[in-house]
Amino acid sequence: MTSMILNGERRAVRAAAETPLLYVLREEFGLNAAKFGCGLGQCGACTVVIDGEAVFSCITPVMLAENRQVTTLEGLGTAEAPGPLQRAFIDAQAAQCGYCIPGMMMRAHALLARDPDASDAAIRAELEPHLCRCGTHMRILRAIRLAADAMRPRSTAEAGR
């Protein structure tokens, strides 16, 4: 039996070790955000963050998450109390159908945690593995920029304390 730290809580996993993480998140833990898009690591809809790295959960066996920190979009806040990245996506109205958005947000989350001052070019380059079919790209870029700006003063202030 595997266990992982899912959105800050240690959780035991019943599924077989080779089960893709995506199905464990959705079926065993009832999470919605990570989506099945291709099952091939080509579209990014299933992206979650493991120990700070964005990964395709559809092709990541759950055993690779053993004892590691797994963060999904649910870990960043709720509709009632959205985190800064979620707030920014709402403020920028950065969704049409929205199916690709959670994956985009998780990769952006990992990027901004690593590089709070990521340039626009760096954000674009980072999102290259992700597909959006509705053509919401400009708003996604704007939302990530908004989030970066909103997060930076606070982190600077905290660092200065």
Partner: peptide
């Protein structure tokens, strides 16, 4: 420009789709 009512659930992992 009223904010869309469906977006908060979509960006927080709510039950937003048939798939969910």
């Amino acid at each position: 420009p009223v904010p869309r009512i469906d977006i908060p659930a979509k960006v927080t992992g709510g039950t937003a789709y048939l798939q969910d």
